[in-house]
Amino acid sequence: MHDQPSVRELVQAVKNFVDETAMPELTGRAGFHARVASNVLGTILRDIDTRFEADASEKTRLLDLLEAPADTSLSKLNEDLRQRIRAGELTIRSDDLMRHLKMTAIDQLKVDQPNYSALKKAIEEP
């Protein structure tokens, strides 16, 4: 399949339209939703840019932490992690667990809400 324009470029084009053309024309509830829509398009762009790499690191950490076979899917790994946590086998005393969860939260928040106050703190912390 061709990619001229790419998905990323198409989303950027729509975001430009929302920001520069639609939003100034809208007021009230529609204006509010246009602002939300623009933020969502920003999230999509960041997701496109980082998901592949973030998923790969998350998977590497989980394979390590859970000592799981390399072909286990990411969603299965997370389901296993949840069960180990719920069974009390992994607790806040595990450095590896805490490091993994924090790195995953950082990567997710960089996409979802890059200006959130706790993200900056988390990146600064050791």
Partner: peptide
């Protein structure tokens, strides 16, 4: 939701 995940882990 990820905002609260970050708050919770901290």
């Amino acid at each position: 939701v990820s905002e609260t995940e970050m708050d919770l882990i901290r």
